[in-house]
Design a protein around this nucleic acid. Structure first.
Lengths: 219, 219
DNA sequence: TAATAAAGTTAGGCTTACCTAAAACATAAA
DNA sequence: TTTATGTTTTAGGTAAGCCTAACTTTATTA
């Protein structure tokens, strides 16, 4: 299983199972995320189909087989364990972990993953609040929601940010909104496309777009 | 700089600068170590030459340029830092670290290397006793020698084993000869191709071949 | 020194994963 | 329903990194 193949399966999984808007993944969307052309996606899908990792008909819905899903979940597990390692042990910030984990997720060593998991005390969520599949591929449910859905007066804890390599990440990190920081939203003032949030003593103005990137756990 | 290119430069460096018998590296020797055919080595050398990483004439000695040496030392630094991490933090044994480090050494992130180095408290030697180049590419000298050169009555400390993926490694690990274990050789009895070593209370029989793989520091 | 062996090189091919350009199909708007 | 727009697929091509087979050069040994 090559790096490229693993990446295709991982992104396919995320588009099929981890999206809020549950619409099917298409060739061009995949191409956009993987930073290749739609024709290349097609080439690879053909190969993955032959190898029984995906199962799609011409012009039809692309779906992972059981085998493909297993590989995808394993890559995701590694990605999120490494992100946790970088954040917890090496003191990386939210904005920095993703790109490095993108490389580390392809290291092939069952033993390494097992030992890393243990070293991190079997974490269930990564720094972005995404669930880390366990060794069997099981994924725990969480009732986290996006900050954008929080209403004035609600209490919650920040648990993560979306696992996207966006410019927001650096910005969010700069706001010092750290995971599990026990910050509680005490008040909201709504402006045009902007919300003024009071986190304990801290006053922070956050745009709609940014609050669509922050996961919180209602208390 | 691709994985393959990095590997060629790393092996070239080791053959040129880290060998006891200081003879020049040849196409077929490189091929043997890199597990490819001599023709492939030639293809790659041509490319590395164009890119000014190596400097060799047809049928002549292959040598690294300053630029090539820098890359090689950096890969070696990463390899040995990762080995140290696996051994010290994840509880891998001597036999297991090499293959995984072989993959990890190609991760591209200056920040990662820097933080890993700090996390490990700036180690100067890896689990095999090989020196870890510092951030500037400087390599500390050590006066370690091979166990095979030790004479009856000498005192020393085991500091590592050769960085080769050999069957010896598992065997050595099983002997429980751990780095910095303060074990001292109290007596040797010589047999045909075999030495019976008394490490404190432990009596261990070791072949010539194995004692050619163990680095010790005379006390 | 000539014959033989070993090492290095070249030529031509293969596979992977990408590409562009053009054709086939699907969907939404007129 | 036809047209316009966008998405998916096909065909043909490229570069990296490997290969085999044949050839050239260097080293060894008779």
């Amino acid at each position: 299983m090559s790096f490229a193949e693993e990446n295709y399966l991982k992104v396919l999984y995320q588009l099929s199972y981890e999206r809020v808007d549950r619409k099917d993944a298409g060739t061009s969307e995949l191409a956009l995320i993987l930073k290749v052309k739609p024709a290349s996606v097609n080439d690879m899908l053909k190969k993955l189909k032959e190898k029984k990792y995906v199962d799609n008909k011409k012009y039809g819905k692309i779906s992972l087989t059981k085998k493909g899903k297993e590989v995808a979940i394993n890559v995701l597990r590694k990605h999120r364990l490494w992100e946790t390692f970088l954040y917890e042990k090496l003191d990386f910030n939210w904005a920095e972990v993703h790109d490095v984990a993108e490389q580390l997720e392809h290291i092939q060593s069952k033993k390494l993953v097992k030992k890393l998991d243990k070293f991190l005390s079997f974490p269930r969520f990564d720094p972005h609040g995404d669930p880390i599949p366990n060794e069997k591929g099981e994924i725990v449910k969480t009732n986290r929601v996006l900050l954008s859905s929080i209403k004035k007066g609600d209490f919650f804890r920040v648990v993560g940010v979306k696992d996207l390599s966006s410019d927001f990440l650096q910005y969010i990190d700069d706001l010092k909104i750290r995971i599990n920081s026990e910050i509680i939203l005490e008040d909201i003032q709504e402006f045009d496309k902007t919300r003024l949030l009071y986190f304990n003593e801290n006053k922070v103005r956050i745009s709609k777009e940014v609050s669509d990137c922050i996961f919180v756990l209602p208390l």
